[in-house]
């Protein structure tokens, strides 16, 4: 028997690289597509399309490639209009959160009873509240704290979730079960209820709301992350590392976590919008940044009594919350849809 191993170039093998099928190329920028085509040109045989696409997505390599492709697609010229709107809004929100306090036309905290409850006008685009403060200025100033706090909550819960889920994954089965059972039990309480209790006890401040929300939300996140890790752990490359003799910790650090983080990030991006709404609800119930804070949820609560006479005081902050929540929700959804081919057409 002669060995053929010395001339790998002669292999007439099918290419594994994703070929730019009609759907996929939609997500690619033309430049990237051309580059890809040049790599693939010599391989692509007919009839392997469907198999290869499924196969590509099933492997975490495909997942990773999918994310970068998805992100590129989000910014690309051929991304769906809704996704592009969501991106623009999210970027605008981030910009406002950063420069809001500097572009606010009035002092957001200075009470001027003379100007109380003025309707929207050229001077006050969104009117004034009961203390005569400019609603637009307060919205712009409050954007930073509102978004930052929501993102902080999500980042913290995600970090805790990944750490606890990893510990569970490394532990003996009994410990794993106990950890997950505790999460289940904690999840039986609505986050709203749990966070309300904790935040109230910790005293009225934005910090205590963040802490309360993290305590209320981590069990759910941990459960999700554990599920993601479990899926990755059952993949063939993790098993092949296992039979090579890699330790449990090594498996987790070098194989499982790197290939799970994409899904974790997507999960986190989807949780931001929930965090914004939950935080606003807590502020509305009276736990949150104390007055005269320009936190959006608190603004809705402050304006509530005047809704019959001055609709603008409560409507604009509520609208801001809604838009932010929807934009972040759409963004997370867009990334998720790109990751999961079965959702592509839905």
């Amino acid at each position: 028997m002669t060995s053929l191993t010395r001339n790998p170039g002669a292999e007439p093998e099918p290419a594994l690289e994703p070929e730019p099928g009609p759907e996929r190329s939609r997500l690619l920028e033309p430049a990237a597509e051309a580059e890809r085509e040049s790599i693939d040109a010599e391989f692509v045989p007919a009839g392997t399309r469907g198999y290869r696409r499924v196969n590509e997505w099933l492997t975490p390599a495909g997942l990773g490639a999918g994310i970068s492709r998805g992100l590129r697609g989000l910014f690309g010229r051929r991304a769906p209009i809704v996704d592009r709107i969501a991106i623009v809004i999210v970027l605008a929100l981030v910009v406002v959160a950063i420069i809001g306090p500097f572009i606010a036309p009035y002092d957001p905290y200075l009470a001027q009873p003379v100007d109380a409850l003025l309707p929207p006008s050229a001077a006050h685009w969104m009117g004034t509240d009961d203390a005569g403060r400019d609603v637009l200025s307060r919205l712009l100033t409050g954007a930073g704290t509102t978004l930052l706090a929501a993102i902080a909550v999500v980042v913290l819960t995600t970090v805790i979730g990944v750490v606890v889920a990893s510990i569970a994954a490394l532990s003996p089965r009994a410990v794993d079960t106990v950890i997950m059972r505790v999460c289940d039990i904690a999840m039986a309480l609505p986050a709203m209820v749990l966070a309300l209790g904790i935040a109230a006890a910790l005293g009225p401040s934005l910090g205590s709301v963040v802490v309360a929300m993290v305590i209320a939300m981590w069990p759910g996140t941990t459960r999700l992350v554990r599920g993601i890790l479990r899926v990755t752990m059952s993949s063939a490359y993790v098993e092949s590392a296992r039979v090579t003799g890699v330790s449990k910790a090594g498996l987790l650090a070098r194989h499982v976590l790197p290939n799970s983080m994409d899904s974790v990030y997507v999960q986190a991006s989807m949780e931001i919008s929930g965090a914004i709404v939950l935080m606003a609800g807590l502020a509305y119930l009276g736990v949150g940044a104390p007055p005269p804070s320009a936190d959006w949820g608190a603004m809705v609560a402050q304006g509530r009594e005047y809704i019959t006479t001055a609709w603008w005081v409560t409507t604009f902050p509520g609208l801001a919350i809604t838009i932010a929540a929807i934009a972040f929700g759409l963004l997370g959804d867009a990334i998720r849809v790109r990751l999961d081919p079965s959702l592509r057409r839905r």
Partner: peptide, 22 residues
């Protein structure tokens, strides 16, 4: 340790048995 270093395995599906991040 001895077993793991002396007995190695090749898996069925080469598309999924290599860590895509390495």
């Amino acid at each position: 340790r001895r077993f793991r270093s002396e007995v190695q395995m090749v898996f069925q599906d080469p598309y999924s048995s290599l860590n895509p991040r390495m």
